[in-house]
Computed example of a mutant assay.
Amino acid sequence: MIWFAVIAALIVVVTVWYVARPLARPTLPDSMEHRDQLQQLRERLLVQLNELDVEEGDRNIDADVVSDERRRLEAELARTLRELETLGGGKKKRKAKAESRRAWVIGLVTLGVLLPLCSAGLYALGQRQTLTYLFNPQASATGSIPPQALEMVARLEKRLEEQPDDAAGWLRLGRAYGVMGRQEAAEAAYARAYKLMPDDPEVVAEYASFLYNTDPQNTGGPVFTLFSKLLKLDPQNQDAMWFLGLAAFQKGDYKQALGYWEPLQKALPAGSNEAEHLSRIVSKTREKMGKK
């Protein structure tokens, strides 16, 4: 929640700066001496521009130099004329007052309307990030876990103590522990969910995938049993077909591996990276089988 407060404070600072800027703007001097100085500068600039025209007509000076010098003199003359106009006073002062009132109105609207809306939006964004951490199995676990996620995990743990037969709750807790890097706790939570719902394809799939990702080199034991069961529960499950083909390949049973991979190859979208990758594997497997 600290960063919410920081962003809100920044919004307040920007608003105060916008409101106070017209008040802090220095007033131009309105003395006769300054006016006389500007008028004298105006006359000198006009004389220099006239002399520049004469020299250009006589071709006593390079054309590029004349062009650059004219732009400089004209820019300085324009600035001088603007300052002289500003010293006129009345109209400019009324305009400055109107700008000041508009700044105050904008500031009040920002503080009274935009700040609460921004705060609510930032809070909702933070909650969405928390939900992503907990309930999206594909979410990456880079960076630190936000405090809201830890609080939700604690509440889920407490609820499961009171309702230990909630298989869906144990499944969510396993996902959360996996995101947090608590592998042993995640495996225990998945095991509880599987014990409560051993024939649920979602539970079996997530439990099997977790075990495989924890130790990709191990294609036997419980992970093999789970993927075999998953394929029976869901004969079109692509993860199960891939894993069981891999397990057979590692045992040297290339025919059985192709029995899983060839149907999977047909099920994958044509031209996809997965299909092309599997096609290369299938080709190599056929070569190996031909050499046996």
Rank of each mutant, 00 (worst) to 15 (best):
A8M: 13
V13M: 11
T15L: 10
V16N: 11
R21V: 00
R21M: 10
P22N: 01
L28V: 11
L28C: 14
E33A: 13
R35V: 03
Q40N: 14
L41A: 02
R44W: 11
L45I: 08
L46R: 10
V47N: 06
L49C: 14
E51G: 08
E51V: 14
D53Q: 08
E55T: 15
G57K: 08
R59G: 02
R59V: 04
N60C: 04
A63H: 07
D64K: 02
V65H: 10
V66Q: 03
R70T: 05
R71F: 03
R72F: 02
R72L: 14
L73E: 07
E74S: 15
E76P: 01
L77Q: 03
L77V: 10
A78M: 04
R79C: 09
E85D: 15
T86K: 13
G88I: 11
G89P: 06
K93H: 01
K95H: 12
A96R: 14
A98P: 00
A98K: 08
E99K: 13
V109Y: 01
G112Q: 06
L115G: 04
L117C: 05
G121C: 04
L122P: 01
G126R: 12
Q129C: 15
T132Q: 06
Y133I: 06
Y133W: 14
F135A: 03
A139Y: 04
S140F: 06
A141G: 10
I145E: 09
E151D: 09
E151L: 00
M152P: 03
M152C: 06
A154G: 11
E157Q: 01
E157L: 05
E157A: 03
L160Y: 00
L160R: 04
E162C: 02
D165W: 02
D166C: 00
L173D: 08
G174C: 08
V179S: 02
M180R: 09
Q183R: 12
E184R: 15
E184V: 02
A191E: 10
A191V: 06
A193D: 05
L196P: 08
P198Q: 11
D200M: 01
V204P: 02
E206N: 09
Y207C: 07
Y207I: 02
A208G: 07
A208N: 12
T214E: 04
D215F: 11
D215M: 09
P216I: 05
P216H: 03
G220H: 11
P222Y: 14
V223Y: 09
L226H: 05
F227I: 11
K229A: 04
L233A: 09
D239R: 00
W242E: 12
W242K: 07
L246Y: 08
A247Y: 04
K251G: 15
G252M: 00
Y254Q: 03
K255Y: 04
Q256R: 00
Q256V: 15
E262Q: 15
Q265I: 10
L268K: 13
A275G: 13
L278I: 14
L278A: 07
R280I: 09
V282K: 06
T285P: 04
M289C: 09
